[in-house]
Amino acid sequence: MDIVVDSLTYTYPGQPGPALRDVSLEVRSGELCCLVGANGAGKSTLCCAVAGFVPHFYRGEMYGAVLVGGQDTVQSTIGELARRVGIVFQNPFDQITGATLTVFAEVAFGLENLGTPREETVARVEGALRRVGLWEVRDRSPFELSGGQQQRLAIASVLAMDPPVIVLDEATSQLDPSGTREVWQIVANLYESGKTLLVAEHKMEYVARHATKVVLMEGGRVVASGPPSEVLGRDDLEAHGVGRPPFMSVVRALREKGLWDGEVPLTLEGAAEVLRKVSGR
């Protein structure tokens, strides 16, 4: 299911200026598109627009259109959108309903609201909890979990609903390195299974490795979009508030010295390979 954002300008209620300015973007079905940029660039607002929270929940003033699977989000209800788009918020505290007493019931919440039969709900909740490694804590209260576990809980509650489009707004921000790796493994598996993914992320090592498309945002606008090698290879990347992965900077340094004229790899292993060739080790 594809996502089309067409000339979207959006202003939150009571705010003097727009959070998004004339944003156009296309994410084809099955793509893994990463949104990068400094805080305040508009990444979260764009995530919310794709999920329909902008404008349905936040209200405000919106021009342009967002289409998910060809359907206009403004014309759809939040309930209809919930079957097509799942969103994992940056802060798991914003996501947890507070209406359930156990991790299991929390993950079942969305399916119950969709009227999913009991047996199917139980099976899907179990599958989602196992996938994020929370099956063992299924009987605990969501609020007894650590920050990282809560973030994985938020992901599980979206996985259980199995929507074709999944949006993750900095979903690894509260996680430790192994938690981040686990979440990106889940994201990579979702990509393999054909989901369309829109992922806002500050950890560029993962963006470089996994994205099929990178969108660089700044001040509510799209500055650049294209394959990761092109966007993360921009000379002015840091000036737009995004740090280049150090392993890419090393290979770029070799290019500047005239020691390497090939591609800049998108993985650490690839960079090690280049260094091995150049140094003759």
Binding site: P245, V250, L268, S279
Partner: peptide, 25 residues
């Protein structure tokens, strides 16, 4: 990352920045 690159390339010493890595190589 620089230390991981150095370790992959079999460097004995630990390098933590780009300059140190390139120098060691």
């Amino acid at each position: 990352q620089m230390a991981r690159l150095g370790q992959r390339l079999g460097l004995e010493e630990c390098v933590l920045d780009q300059e140190a890595l390139l120098r060691a190589l």
